[in-house]
Design a protein around this nucleic acid. Structure first.
Lengths: 224, 224
DNA sequence: CGTATACAAGTTGTATACAGGTTGGATTAT
DNA sequence: ATAATCCAACCTGTATACAACTTGTATACG
């Protein structure tokens, strides 16, 4: 593969982790990655260390770099916090909606609608990542933006992990609805409404997770 | 100096930065630090990269690793966020106050009271760092704990930077008052009161910063 | 057959050598 | 004297060699 800088390697690895290309528990080898990216171990190590600081992997000497699994308690803590932070966005939003955001969201909405009849978890996960990136742009507080991003990637995998056991049509519809509701709120320049929408859909997702976990036989798929 | 692991080097450097031993704009050399800590550049680089991810330094090829300066806009954004997060602590606090916390705080309060007549910015900054560490322990939400810590260290230097131009007795008294108020709230197991106290004292500090900046001739001491 | 042990292969952590880049001062031309 | 140029010293970024550690396997032993 062509040479990539440390930042690109980081983003690539992060995407692979949150798209479950590297599932929780997967063992990564710095050497293998170095060969794949066409660089030495050094920049790969930098990227992995950053992922370790953010809690996505754990390096163990003599073993390897292991993709972290999202344990239930941590998942709930992150979501409890993200819901609170989502409300904060209403207070700390940019005064004006960044140019192009609404147009981008409308494209994503159109893409999402076309997914109804094509079961493709990978594709909708990518789409939701793009949606997330757009939503970051309306946050007017830089540290909050950074933190929201970190927290998102710490748990983004969960959806993909349980998606095979959920109702595909319903998940696609809910995603479309969320994007549409955000667009409407943005067109009204009502940032608190945006915040409310985001919080409500997080809450909805959390309750879907809980009912998923309630079905006993599927409890171990999240894995410790 | 005796060999230190990467984590220890990181904490040491972070403390030096937030105690202004390395003032904003200071140029650090990986080689020099490696010699001082008795290790090679590699673990020093790891520590510096972590500091860079957290926004405390900036590495520039051919130049060095420069201690970041806290610009005014960023400072206000961090404080706006920290005040909101402080309120969240009231909702996401531990059900019970960790054992030993109140005793530790009473010791800190006693130490602080003895500082009234001895002008020593370094000492009170260390004390407030210890206070901060104790306050982290009452946060019941792990990601919030991590984030609160990051945000604290991003702006902790500001106090020390302007302390020489503030009223020492008043600053010591305010610090004592904050610790005492937190102790009282903790003894009542009223976490929302703890959160309120913390927010109010942050707000108070922010207004002191603003009036400091209002005195025109001192405006450039924060530095770009 | 079961168990303990030694070891080989593979991994991360560290040290060192080299490449690429910046800066400030000496030097030279104007 | 002044301005432009060159270069040496220093820095970070990268590549590579080595040390320390873990683990599964083969082997010897009870």
């Amino acid at each position: 593969m062509a040479k990539k800088s440390q930042e690109e390697i980081y983003k690539q690895l992060r995407e692979r982790i949150c798209l479950l290309h590297y599932p929780p528990g997967a063992v990564l080898s710095e050497n293998t990655l170095a060969v794949e990216f066409g660089v030495s171990r050094t920049p790969v190590r930098s990227a992995l260390q950053r992922l370790e600081f953010e809690g996505l992997v754990t390096s163990m000497q003599g073993v390897g770099t292991i993709v972290a699994s999202v344990d239930l308690k941590f998942l709930k803590e992150v979501y409890a916090l993200r819901m609170k932070l989502a409300e904060l966005v209403g207070d700390l939003a940019r005064p004006r909606v960044p140019h192009g955001t609404i147009a981008a969201l409308k494209e994503l909405l159109e893409e999402c609608r076309q997914m109804t009849d094509h079961y493709d978890p990978d594709a909708i996960a990518r789409l939701y990542n793009d949606f997330h990136e757009e939503m970051l742009n309306v946050i007017g507080n830089e540290p909050l933006r950074v933190i929201s991003n970190q927290l998102y990637y710490q748990t983004a995998r969960i959806w993909l992990q349980i998606l095979p056991d959920l109702d595909w049509h319903r998940e696609v519809k809910l995603t479309c609805d969320e994007i549409a509701a955000v667009i409407e709120a943005l067109e009204n320049e009502d940032m608190r409404a945006v915040a409310r929408v985001r919080r409500d859909y997080m809450s909805s997702f959390l309750s879907r997770i809980n009912s998923y976990l309630a079905s006993a036989d599927s409890r171990e798929r999240i894995g410790s």
